[in-house]
Amino acid sequence: MAKKVLIVEDNELNMKLFHDLLEAHGYQTVGTRNGIEALDLARRHRPDLILMDIQLPEVSGLEVTKWLKDDAELKSIPVVAVTAFAMKGDEERIREGGCEAYLSKPISVGKFIETIRHFLGSP
C-alpha cells in the first residue's frame, strides 16, 4: 500500500506543487489549508508523514505541531516543516517546536523528494 502524506499548506499553488510532486513519486496525499482541520485529518487518515507550512490562517503550523506531538497516538508521525520563514534563527526555532525536519521555500525538488524518502523509503 502506498504511503500517505498529509500536506498542510494554505497557498493554493504550493499545495498543488507538493501534491503533484508526491503523486508523481507514487505517494498518496491528503491536503488541508487549515491547521485545525489538520489535526482531524491526521486522526482520521493516520498519515505516514506530515508536511507542515508554518504560516497558516487561524493557528500557526508550530501550534499544530505542538498539538500533534502532545497527542499520544499522533506524536510518532514525523513532521517536516516546509516554510518561507528562512531568516536567521527560523530553522532552530522551528526544529525546537517539534518538527523532525525543516525545508525552506523555495524548495529544491531533489532535496524535497530525498527528505520524503528519508522518512518513508521508496514507495
Binding site: 518561507a84 528562512a86 521555500k105 523555495p106 529544491s108 525538488v109
Partner: peptide, 21 residues
C-alpha cells in the same frame, strides 16, 4: 525584511518547483 522574504519565497516556491518538474 522578514515579511518580504516570506512573501517573495512563497510564489518563488511555485515557480522554482513547477519549472524543476
Amino acid at each position: 525584511l522578514a515579511n518580504m522574504s516570506h512573501e517573495l519565497r512563497t510564489p518563488l516556491n511555485a515557480i522554482i518547483g513547477f519549472s524543476e518538474m
